[in-house]
Computed example of a mutant assay.
Amino acid sequence: MAIDQHGDAALQGVSIRSLPKVSLHDHLDGGVRPQTIIELADEIDLDVPEEDADDLADWFAEKSDSGSLVEYLKTFDLTTAVMQTREGLTRVAREFVEDLVADGVVYGEVRWAPEQHLARGLSLEEAVEAVQEGIEQGEDAADRRDRDIRVGQLITAMRHTDRSLEIAKLAVAYRDRGAVGFDIAGPEDGFPPSKHRAAFDYLASEFFPATVHAGEAAGLDSIRGALIDGRALRLGHGVRLAEDLEVVSRSGEEVLVEFGDLARWVRDREIPLELSPSSNLQTGAIAAWGTTLEDHPFDLLYQLGFSVTVNVDNRTMSRTSLTRELALLAETFDYDLDDLEVFQLNAAAGAFLPVEEREELIAIIGDGFDR
């Protein structure tokens, strides 16, 4: 299967880009267009490492491909720097939605940390409202082109700071004004969900859903903490859950696997895994298994019945799209349209939406794949 320069490919005669998709793990500050970075940086007299958009895209790709989450996260210093004004946040959010539409996404959840966007005087509330304004502008523009999309905010707290309870209350305050869920992000190793137990207790008392970054830069204890301390309804990445699986034997295509209690719980409860193949390679999240996409435990998790979903994590850093991630997986593991549909249905079922709206989303995906 040939993947073109835009990351698209034809599968069974169908363009993957044309298929309806659901994006659950997509960072706002990880999806800023390089040209937008250059223009916004110029407005605030900020130096950028490259003045040409293509060269800047190359810079992000090179710096992100380090095998370390800590090093990977340093590239966000540049993107967050140009997202400190209302105008900058609104523009980035609007373009983010436009890029989702171009990617064939019909429902997306965009995660971002308001506490990282206050350097030029915005309040937390003003930052949330600026992003929501941009989202709505993007949705309205799509509607004028007869393209349906809905995007919700995942309000995120940084796990290495002490503002998580404040951010949790912010998320709940905006639950009817764009916010659909909560997350903690940032350096995972050494900053377990237990440090934010007060925030998660508050969210639980308000029946507000949470997804938690876990099982990326840290292992099984991080995932346990996400489920027990964070009451996570989804696992952000969760790829290292495969450490709780022991391959006992292989015979041809048949693999006998012994489950640990944690892996069995996640599988049996159908807790969605927000897997991001390209990002997982860049950050070294799959180092225990190898360094290529063929080594990624995605297919093992899928074949064992886990609720796997496909995500981009950070479009700019990984120079990718949901279309490209699906094309790479299809090429690597010989998936067909039925497999790609399962991934979208898993994501729709795990979306932070009321059940009626999830059922509607599932119907949209089914109709789109049938066509």
Rank of each mutant, 00 (worst) to 15 (best):
E133K: 13
E133D: 15
E133N: 12
G134K: 01
E136Y: 06
E136P: 00
Q137L: 15
Q137R: 14
E139G: 00
D140V: 14
D140W: 05
A141Q: 12
A141V: 04
A142Y: 09
A142D: 03
R145D: 06
R145C: 05
D146N: 15
D146K: 11
D146C: 05
R150V: 14
G152Q: 09
G152D: 11
Q153M: 15
Q153D: 03
I155F: 02
T156Q: 04
A157S: 13
A157R: 01
A157N: 08
A157Y: 10
M158A: 10
M158D: 08
M158W: 06
R159D: 02
H160I: 03
H160P: 01
H160A: 13
T161A: 05
T161G: 00
D162N: 13
D162I: 05
S164Y: 04
S164P: 04
S164H: 07
L165I: 02
L165K: 10
E166W: 11
I167F: 04
K169S: 02
K169V: 03
L170N: 08
A171M: 09
A171S: 12
V172F: 10
A173H: 12
Y174I: 11
Y174V: 07
Y174S: 06
R175P: 06
D176N: 15
D176E: 15
G178R: 11
G178K: 07
G178Q: 10
A179K: 07
A179C: 09
V180L: 13
V180E: 06
G181Y: 06
G181P: 13
F182A: 07
F182H: 06
D183C: 07
I184T: 14
I184M: 08
I184K: 02
A185L: 05
G186A: 12
G186R: 09
G186S: 10
E188Q: 09
D189G: 01
G190P: 08
G190I: 14
F191R: 06
F191I: 04
S194R: 14
S194M: 09
S194P: 01
S194K: 13
S194Y: 03
S194L: 12
